[in-house]
Design a protein around this nucleic acid. Sequence first.
DNA 1: ATATTTTTTTAGTCCGGTCTAAAAAATAAA
DNA 2: TTTATTTTTTAGACCGGACTAAAAAAATAT
Lengths: 236, 236
Amino acid sequence: MAQYILYSTSSCGVGEISKHTMTFSEENYLKTIYHLTAVSDTDVSTNSIAEKMETKASSVTDMLKKLAEKELVNYVKYQGVSLTEKGQLAAKMIVRKHRLWETFLVEKLDFSWDEVHDLAEQLEHIKSEKLINKLDNFLGNPTEDPHGDAIPDASGRITKIEKQLLSEVEKNRVGICVGVKDTSSDFLKYLDKQEIALGSQIEIIEKESFDSSFRIRVGTKEITISNKIASNLYIK
Amino acid sequence: MAQYILYSTSSCGVGEISKHTMTFSEENYLKTIYHLTAVSDTDVSTNSIAEKMETKASSVTDMLKKLAEKELVNYVKYQGVSLTEKGQLAAKMIVRKHRLWETFLVEKLDFSWDEVHDLAEQLEHIKSEKLINKLDNFLGNPTEDPHGDAIPDASGRITKIEKQLLSEVEKNRVGICVGVKDTSSDFLKYLDKQEIALGSQIEIIEKESFDSSFRIRVGTKEITISNKIASNLYIK
DNA sequence: ATATTTTTTTAGTCCGGTCTAAAAAATAAA
DNA sequence: TTTATTTTTTAGACCGGACTAAAAAAATAT
Ligand SMILES: [Mn+2]
Ligand SMILES: [Mn+2]
Ligand SMILES: [Mn+2]
Ligand SMILES: [Mn+2]
């Protein structure tokens, strides 16, 4: 009875993963685990995956076994899951595709930043290394997507940009908006309404201690934003 | 016991079909029926679908029932199948997507015409009317794809170009190569080797009656091509 | 240390899409 | 017109990926 204890010993290149073709479902699970790992850095729980994917824990367990069988995750039952080298690389390639497609949609097809995520959820599953590398080139090898998120390069490397949540920045600091944490359409449309975009200059005028709201100057005009807004905006 | 006799009475617009989301498989069946109809114009047989899709007749029968249930095809058992108005429009939209993506890959990403079909087989299933219309615009609303096939417009209309198979053209005629019938990578690479491309001028110098081969001038140079080649090249 | 609650896994079902084998209908041959 | 062949459909199974309900393990509370 296999216990799915599969620790990757040798590393592997991008070429390896593209041989075994993955299903959409497998790709979505890998991507979710990758994103969950990024925030907590510990092993990821079955429930957290289920919650994020809006599925049931039992479905997650099933899939974790399959992914472990394919050596994409380290899975020990009741003890959560983590990505193997191979799994991490595969996940990064999906994220790469997602973010490059988002960039294409905004830069070339004139979509607005709140429309592209759902489309990229489809496009990220198109299987072709050549296509994505040509697309990358066509776009001028961008390092960030329309939401300010880093785009992994063809070998999976990420150049991470130092940025801080607006909510964790001291009064009087002036910075440039370089990213958003929440990428929901609602939030992005709110930012459009307030004329906050990537590249906007933001100055913190006042922090209200009572409700942790912020008085900021964005461009020329002064506005008040809630703490929830401030904690979803990255500045540099 | 339903007999699947579903004749479409009222016509329907593009908006209609985009509501009910189709599976990849359903889309592939529709597209196949569409293409088979184009050549014979009579009802399409179960076996011909199976052959073209490299699947089994029993699988086809199953799917035809489902498509009939959704009023995408007129299906009477043992009597073949045809597309309803709704089904034909849906099929055209898939073909539209396929050919626009092929055009994008060749025109913008610098793929060669023998590489794009398989990729377009994936991309044609991306669900978004807005995306495909924006892509169409980005490409300058092309009317033909890289193989000379007509691209249906947003409402499904096709401007068909008069063209003839090279094999059916009389001696001494001079024409422009405007399309290929076979779009296999092998055939397209052969044409590359012979420096025959869309737009090439072709003059028929001689028809060899013994093996029906052709002596042609393409550009400056003179070459001999088999009847099989000639019957897969369209000229105007 | 024991009982309770939460998390995770297992067992069993379902659905879409495929398959094989066998039955039924349509077509072709005798 | 009867027989043989081909085409098509049905019956039953499998697989991937989801679900519910119940069991088992882990975490928390008493
Ligand atoms: Mn996104
Ligand atoms: Mn993004
Ligand atoms: Mn094609
Ligand atoms: Mn084509």
